[in-house]
Design a protein around this nucleic acid. Structure first.
Length: 793
RNA sequence: GGGAGCAUAGCUCAGUUGGUUUAGAGCAUCUGCCUUACAAGCAGAGGGUCCGCGGUUCGAACCCGUGUGCUCCCACCA
């Protein structure tokens, strides 16, 4: 089913990847792809060359890399003697058969010896230096081939010398290219020995192997057989052993296309996120770029626009009509092959291939284009920038801003889009590239159909809600890192939804209880005023952080900031601070401000949880606009002092709550507090909040009052607490001693630094000043704690 | 085999050009609370040889070298 859809879409010229539909495409896109192919061909950037493919001899078809399964098996190495070709006639007469006159070569595939075109040793291998300039005779077919030397050969493997069979091994093929050796394909498509093999023609390759071994044995040329562990590729379709096979393919020259694409990234014109992780990969690929094989032997896809006449002459054109015109003009078609490649492809290959015309008609090349050959034009042709250049849309939308994609296609897609952009628009296609991670399961495995570990998103949405699923995925996807999918983060999202509803519920309860009298409005207490000032600044600070993180594409961290801003700062602190006492009204101004803050929070969260935020936005207040289109207001100027006072207040509340907790003082039991401080300036505005949050019926300032039951140290202040209940002082002392111990240790580490001459000489002045301040603060605190300890004893 | 990257709390990760405390967050765990929005909650606590080793530096989670383990991409039948 998937294949049918895939092929249908591809026939329409749509580029599809199994895991993501890249785009849907109209006829104009199809035309654009053809146009670009012809253009590149005319520029001399497209050529025909040779390439190894994986061939399934049973199914008689080419296999993609994914269709080849590698298995560890025990293979056999056959050690075969090759005789040195005589240098002079005298040699034949003398000792032509002495051991010195033979070279032993190890091979797994003796049936390929008929395709040998050379033997090769490592240039640093002393054993074989004497072979320089010599030739050897291939056994059974008695053909002379040269001895060559290349670093590729490992001295320690086999006998340290190997046979070069370019038609049947990728390494041999590459060496063949390097040394301009011919290619002799000794296999037919069905895996039988071809005419070029000369002997055992028509026999299956494995039958031929046995017969060749027997023949070699008979002649005394097989020294030994040795078992060794190796890996073999098997066809996923037929389970037969995959045969590397030489084939003629279409290529795009990449060097000139890659250079501008590399420059755009190295000059930061295009920014990759996360930078350190992927720019290295990108650069490596482009600096070592290999020509791009764009032809595929599939029965679906966009056919290559090349036609052949009966003489085998090739015409590349956008349409068959155009090709016919070229044929009529009898223009002498220059060879599209690079000289290097054409030297390699032998006569037999060209004749035997499909390109031979069968009638006087033109025959179209049956190969189709690589998926990515259409995909790389995507940023341009979706706006018809190729089929209809300089139109309104392409001028408006190109270049676009951000490409979001997977790291696995950095080279396949991203790099090539940049290349196409630079070549055809003379401008980058996008300014930023953001790579998402791969979704993996809890165990770190890739999501796959065969493992069945892909989550059913629709089911999860039913279970947790759409926003919760979005939240769960966003919160656990740090930029560029893989995402380990775990339902616990969705649960967190679900709870967050609930929290938002409850905050709404609270605010809605206040709505019916707003005081409207002038007196109450003008006497908003200092606590409420401080709460507002503080939250405004807290909001501004968080928005600045979020802005920065979004610019850096750190989406999960931005969400974490927003999550904590809403849950902790807004719900746990602000709402508690302004919450009216039971049965009392809320000042109109406070209520309205609270709604404004809530609006802003929803707006921040909206990109992550669009549904619930939009819903609450409309439930909060009658309004005509929608959150999804609402624009952000400018971030107000930050007043740090307010934030500091807020932290101070939170510290006080936390410390007193903690003391209550530790001493089993229930919240209902009121306490009275006396604060001993050197600086009481900001306490005035904090008092109303503090007294309510810790249930203190009285707060005074001064030194230690009698009847003190609890003593704590917060910052540089000492807090004395009086309760009705008797409190065990041992625990308090223990705690104070612990703090003292920590601070003393801390002080020692600072003293060590400051008494180190080299530190004082070398460190920056601001670092030294900082250390001195740390020391000063610690000393004050130690003194405060000492006094508290004394007073307790 | 070639290349890239990762290793910090039980788990997932922050840690911004080396100094902002004796390393932080969320989740999980533990303790105490049905306190008038929320037990899907509130208030707290515990938890780390920053993978091992060596080096540079006054100073290293951060820089360099090396070892180990893991992940990804490309390649792969002498």
């Amino acid at each position: 089913y998937g294949n049918i859809i895939y092929s249908q879409i591809r026939r329409l010229g749509c580029s599809v990847d199994w895991d993501r539909v890249t785009f849907t495409m109209d006829d104009h896109y199809y035309q654009a792809v053809i146009k670009i192919f012809v253009d590149l061909y005319n520029k001399g950037l497209v050529y025909r060359g040779a390439r190894m493919i994986n061939w399934d001899t049973a199914a008689q078809t080419a296999l993609s890399d994914e269709e080849v399964e590698y298995k560890d098996v025990t293979g056999k190495l056959y050690f075969i003697k090759y005789k040195l070709a005589p240098l002079a006639i005298s040699e034949i007469e003398n000792d032509g058969n002495s051991e010195d006159n033979f070279v032993t070569i190890a091979t797994q595939r003796p049936e390929t010896i008929m395709g040998d075109v050379a033997i090769c040793a490592n240039p640093n291998d002393d054993r074989y230096t004497k072979l320089k300039g010599r030739k050897v005779i291939v056994p059974l077919i008695n053909k002379e081939v040269p001895v060559i030397f290349d670093d590729y050969v490992e001295k320690d493997f086999g006998t340290g010398i190997l046979k070069i069979t370019p038609a049947h091994d990728i390494h041999d093929f590459n060496i063949g290219l390097k040394y301009h050796l011919p290619v002799i394909d000794t296999l037919n498509n069905d895996g039988t020995i071809s005419e070029a093999g000369q002997i055992f023609v028509g026999e299956d390759r494995f039958t031929a192997r046995k017969k060749i071994i027997a023949a070699l044995k008979e002649k005394g040329l097989l020294i030994k057989e040795e078992e060794y562990p190796t890996r073999l590729g098997y066809s996923q379709r037929s389970q037969s052993i995959v045969e590397p096979k030489i084939s003629t393919q279409w290529f795009v020259k990449m060097k000139d296309l890659a250079t501008p694409a590399l420059d755009e990234v190295t000059s930061d014109n295009i920014r990759i996120h996360p930078k350190d992780k992927f720019t290295a990969t990108y650069k490596y690929w482009l600096e070592n770029v290999k020509d791009w094989c764009i032809s595929r032997q599939l029965w679906w896809g966009q056919q290559i626009p090349a036609w052949y006449d009966e003489e085998g002459k090739m015409y590349v054109a956008e349409t068959e009509e155009e090709a016919r015109k070229q044929q009529g003009a009898q223009s002498s078609e220059p060879s599209a092959m690079s000289s290097e490649q054409s030297a390699v492809i032998n006569e037999q290959l060209a004749q035997g291939s499909k390109i031979k015309a069968q009638s006087s008609k033109l025959t179209r090349d049956e190969d189709v284009l690589d998926t990515w050959f259409s995909s790389w034009l995507w940023p341009i042709e979706v706006f018809k920038g190729i089929s209809n250049p300089d139109n309104k849309e392409i001028n408006y939308y190109y270049p676009t801003s951000v490409l979001v994609t997977g790291q696995d296609i950095i080279f396949f897609w991203v790099a090539r889009m940049i290349m196409a952009g630079m070549e055809y628009m003379k401008e980058k296609p996008f300014a930023d590239v953001y790579f998402t991670g791969m979704v993996r399961d809890k165990l770190g495995r890739k999501m796959s159909k065969s493992l069945g570990n892909s989550p059913d998103l629709l089911n999860l949405i039913d279970q947790y809600g759409a926003d919760a699923v979005r939240f769960g995925i966003m919160i656990s996807s740090p930029a560029g890192n893989d995402l380990l999918f775990d339902e616990s983060s969705l649960e967190q999202g679900k709870f967050f939804n609930n929290k938002l509803w409850n905050a709404l519920k609270l605010v809605k309860m206040w709505e019916g209880n707003i005081s409207t009298s002038d007196i109450e409005q003008t006497t908003i207490n200092e606590g409420n005023q401080f709460a507002q000032k503080w939250f405004e600044n807290r909001l501004a600070a968080a928005r600045m952080e979020v802005d920065l993180l979004m610019q850096q594409f750190k989406l999960s961290e931005a969400l974490k900031i927003i999550y904590s801003l809403i849950w902790d700062d807004f719900c746990s602190w602000y709402l508690e601070w302004v919450k009216p006492e039971f049965g009392k009204t809320i000042a109109k101004e406070v209520f309205e401000k609270t709604i404004d803050y809530f609006d802003e929070l929803l707006q921040l969260l909206h990109p992550f949880m669009p549904f619930i935020t939009e819903e609450i936005y409309h439930l909060l207040k009658e309004r005509t606009d929608d959150l999804t289109v609402k624009q952000f207001q400018e971030i107000p100027y930050l007043i740090n002092v307010v934030l500091q006072s807020g932290s101070h207040l939170k510290e006080l509340i936390t410390a007193i709550r903690d003391a209550r907790n530790k001493n089993n003082l229930k919240f209902k039991e009121a306490i009275s507090i006396c604060i001993e401080t050197n600086d009481s300036t900001d306490f005035d505005q904090l008092m109303p909040i503090l007294s309510r949050q810790v249930n203190a019926d009285a707060i005074t300032f001064g030194s230690k009052p009698i009847n003190t039951t609890l003593t704590l140290v917060v910052g540089n202040d000492t807090i004395y607490i009086r309760t009705e209940k008797e409190i065990d002082t041992a625990e308090q002392l223990d705690r104070l001693h612990k703090d003292l111990q920590y601070l003393n240790g801390f002080l020692i580490s600072i003293d060590k630094k400051l008494s180190n001459d080299k530190f004082v000489q070398n460190a920056k002045p601001e670092i030294i000043a900082l250390e001195k301040k740390k020391k000063y603060d610690a000393e004050i605190k130690i003194e405060t704690i000492r006094q508290s300890i004394d007073s307790l004893q």
